[in-house]
């Protein structure tokens, strides 16, 4: 399993920083996020108080389409989908019900779905996006960072995009120069090999 290439906790209190290194390690491991994160840097200053986490994610797997895990055969007005991987079945059924309505989607057995629909309606069916793991990873990542941060820090700002993410938190109003601080910490990540 790939590990995080850069993992630092910066804190003016040495002992406190060491504990947070362990906390971050345990939480990221528990939430299965080690594979997702390439670099991460925490900055905690209890005197301000402020908590900053900035990081870069690895390349995320793209959206999962219907053809990735099943076989679609179209015959006149009838489409038969043979499922190879049940993981996405629930989400697939939900999307199909939304598109065609429950009365036109049948599931004669666990691994087969039969849809009665015209060819016009079903021609792009194979490209149907069933799941997008990057969306849930974003939620998981932010949730994990919220678990790591000291609890009293209720004022938060978070951002995710282009493979980069950050979360800043404090118990007071966030300082105005917070963007500079985040940029500074991102620069540290980029400098590191």
């Amino acid at each position: 399993m790939a590990s995080i290439e850069y993992f630092e906790v910066e804190c003016p209190e040495e002992t406190g920083g060491r504990y947070y290194q362990r906390i971050a390690d345990v939480v990221l491991l528990d939430h299965n996020l080690i594979r997702v994160i390439q670099k991460i840097h925490f900055f905690i200053d209890p005197r301000v108080p402020i908590f900053v986490a900035v990081g870069i994610t690895r390349k995320m797997p793209g959206p999962v389409r219907l053809r990735d895990f099943s076989d679609v055969s179209i015959q006149d007005d009838k489409v038969t989908i043979s499922i190879g991987d049940e993981t996405y079945l629930a989400k697939l059924l939900k999307s199909l019900w939304d598109i065609f309505g429950k009365e036109r989607v049948e599931q004669p057995d666990r691994f087969t779905i039969v849809i009665s629909a015209s060819t016009d309606e079903t021609k792009d069916l194979e490209d149907l996006v069933v799941d997008d793991p990057s969306l849930s990873i974003y939620k998981d990542l932010i949730y994990a960072l919220q678990v790591i941060q000291p609890e009293g820090f209720k004022v938060r700002r978070q951002h995710y995009g282009d493979g980069r993410f950050y979360l800043v938190a404090s118990e007071d109003t966030l300082p105005e120069d917070i963007d500079d601080l985040v940029r500074e910490k991102f620069a540290l990540l980029e400098e590191s090999p």
Binding site: E13, T15, G16, Y19, P46, R47
Partner: peptide, 14 residues
């Protein structure tokens, strides 16, 4: 109670 055990955090400042 007879005694209270306070479980505090990791930072001296706090």
């Amino acid at each position: 109670h007879d005694l209270a055990v306070y479980l505090l955090g990791n930072f001296e400042t706090c």
